[in-house]
Design a binder for these strands. Structure first.
Length: 570
RNA sequence: GCCUUGGUAGCUCAGUUGGAUAGAGCGACCGCCUUCUAAGCGGUAGGUCACAGGUUCGAAUCCUGUCCAGGGUACCA
């Protein structure tokens, strides 16, 4: 990373100047907006206070004392650095040497991370919001592994509790209907809230009848519940795999009840004096840890609240990992203080429970905002994937920062697949592959009368050896300013991949990968438009083909981290 | 009321601990295919960074207040 090198050199020079208090001022390396200035820039203006000098003079002093092999110029308080051809070559060489590992780092230092996301109830198909967490979570997982974390991905199944009773009762109605009775969902508004009236239970009911051959007057509600749970979970699991999301473990809430982990954790909180009884319920003193109010663990009717098993689950997770990462929807925001409080009370470090709060997804149908809800007939994640494909869906879901509400315009996503950014990016990859293919194919000269057969430009062995001798820039000093500029821009974009990965992982922001992919593709398309690769002078051909190889590698890595395919042709 | 996320070009959004002339995509308009994929490239137009104060040599960025929008504020999950 040349950024680090530049910063190191500047810091050494600043230290030599001996400004009092300069150590506490942190300088930054940035990329100049205007590439004419240079490849990297350091603004020394922050030193003005301790140096008591105009920024321009400081910059001059620093440059006088710096040991840097390359062009340097000063504009106001900015010191601009230009990489030499040799330094740029080393970028390409590094990419081709490290291959699919280029860009990786050891920031995570092997820390054990348990990343939990999606964690939907097994009471219906995924809606589009689940898709956002699924895509982001799996991409974040890959990004963190790429940065030296030891990540396990987990899905918590809420397969206990009242919603399962609702599910069982709903399936009962559907089974009775399929058996030819006139059973109906209740019409009373208060009652209907306890039922899932979506069509998706009809095939489940049919399957239940086929497998169990039940009679209408003898339906076992528990059996219905577990059957429905298993069927809907299977649907979810299949869809996740189709969507490129591979959890290491599906953790059943039910097992926490069966093993009495829930009871044990509550007992532990009691022992520690963190609970009390009031109005017939058992309360957790979460206000002792900064929550707005205390929270109920066991309701007056004796049943656990949702919080109780969830505390047991998080306690279990802390026993298995150093860092807990949860992706939660913004509607769970109020839940964070009580969970952190519970972890503190149980003796865990709540700073190691990081909740990534994701803003919700709005569905736009016919230009109208539609509320999500699985009880209404609606567009599911499965439907969306059918319509726009896995690649486009994943890219769209990851593309925006987790802090902004995602307006998913279904009609737009369906109709405008041609100018979808994901195609733009994939097209760049396919183009690069096409060049590499053409380079080793036999040619036919159609310019003369006879169609003459010519040998390919390169053998596969020659292409493989290009990685060993990436003398790119020297050979690229052609008499074409646009070609030089776009070539250099592409190399610098490849160079910035390492620091991009680092800042993306530090801020847990896979969306940065989408932006990078688009910028990288754009730089390549410009290179392509200005710089003919094949059938030019041999040195130039080798040099440009080497750059194509390096570009293809980095784009493929970026797409892999996004869980989006990198097609060889389109 | 309180907690929380936003408000930047017609639309959707970037803008990394305060720094160079505030950027990208889409949409609009004008150009570019006999040669490696035109799902592409070049160009033009488009801004009071919600508003008002404050801190600073310097603010889209930090502080205070106001306005607007989403989410939360359960002995639901």
């Amino acid at each position: 990373m040349f950024k680090d090198l530049v910063l190191e050199k500047v810091n050494i020079a600043v230290a030599k100047l001996g400004f009092e208090g300069a150590e506490s001022i942190e300088l930054r390396v940035e990329t100049p907006k205007n590439p004419e200035f240079g490849d990297f820039a350091v603004n020394v203006s922050p030193l003005a206070k301790v140096a008591r000098m105009a920024p321009f003079l400081i910059a001059q002093k620093v440059v006088e004392n710096i040991d840097f092999d390359g062009d340097i110029n000063i504009v106001a308080g900015f010191i601009n650095f230009k990489l030499t051809n040799g330094q740029q070559n080393s970028v390409v060489k590094k990419v081709l040497t490290e291959k699919e590992n280029y860009g990786s780092n050891n920031f995570g230092n092997g820390e054990k991370v348990l990343l939990e996301y999606v964690s939907a109830n097994p009471t219906g198909p995924f809606h589009i919001g689940h898709g956002r967490w699924a895509a982001m979570g799996s991409s974040l997982s890959d990004l963190m592994k790429f940065s030296g974390y030891d990540v396990a991905q987990e899905f918590y199944i809420n397969d206990a509790g009242n919603q399962i009773n609702c599910l069982a009762n709903s399936l009962k109605v559907r089974v009775l209907q399929e058996l030819g009775t006139d059973a109906q969902f209740p019409t009373d508004e208060a009652e209907i809230k306890n039922y899932y009236t979506g069509d998706y239970l009809i095939p489940v009911a049919k399957k239940y009848i086929e497998e169990k051959n039940p009679s209408a007057d003898n339906l076992d509600i528990n059996d219905l519940g577990s059957f429905a749970k298993a069927e809907l979970f299977k649907l979810q699991e299949d869809l996740l795999i189709k969507f490129g999301v591979n959890f290491d473990r599906f953790y059943s809430e039910l097992t926490l009840h069966e093993s009495n982990r829930v009871g044990e954790v509550i007992e532990e909180l009691k022992q520690k004096g963190k609970t009390y009884e009031k109005d017939g319920a058992l309360w957790f003193k979460s206000t002792e840890y900064g929550d707005d109010q205390d929270r109920v663990l066991i309701k007056a009717d004796g049943a656990y609240t949702y919080l109780a098993p969830d505390i047991a689950y998080h306690d279990d997770k802390f026993k298995r990992a150093d860092l807990l990462l949860n992706i939660w929807g913004a509607d769970h925001h109020g839940y964070i203080p009580r969970m952190k409080a519970a972890m503190e009370a149980l003796g865990h470090n709540s700073d190691k429970l990081e909740v990534l709060l994701g803003q919700l997804v709005n569905l736009i149908i016919n230009g109208e905002q539609t509320r999500m809800g699985k009880r209404k007939k609606m567009l599911t994640l499965g439907d969306l994937i059918e319509d726009v494909g896995v690649d486009a869906t994943r890219f769209w879901m990851i593309m925006r920062s987790i802090d902004t509400t995602l307006d998913f315009d279904v009609d737009l996503a369906k109709s405008s697949s041609d100018d979808n950014p994901v195609f733009y990016v994939q097209y760049a990859h396919a183009r690069a592959c096409s060049i590499l293919r053409t380079a080793v194919e036999p040619r036919i000269d159609t310019s003369g009368e006879n169609n003459e057969h010519l040998a390919p430009f390169f053998t596969k062995e020659q292409i493989a050896s290009l990685a060993q001798n990436p003398c790119v820039m020297a050979a690229l000093d052609v008499d074409d300013a646009r070609s030089i500029a776009s070539t250099k821009a592409l190399i610098m974009k490849l160079e910035s991949f390492e620091s991009l990965i680092l800042s993306a992982v530090k801020s847990r922001s896979p969306y940065m990968l989408c932006r990078y992919a688009q910028e990288l593709a754009s730089d390549f398309h410009q290179f392509y438009a200005t710089s003919r690769v094949l059938n030019v002078e041999p040195d130039l051909m080798r040099a440009r083909l080497t750059l194509v190889l390096a570009f293809r590698q980095v784009l493929a890595t970026t797409l892999r981290l996004l869980g989006v395919s990198a097609p060889e042709s389109m």
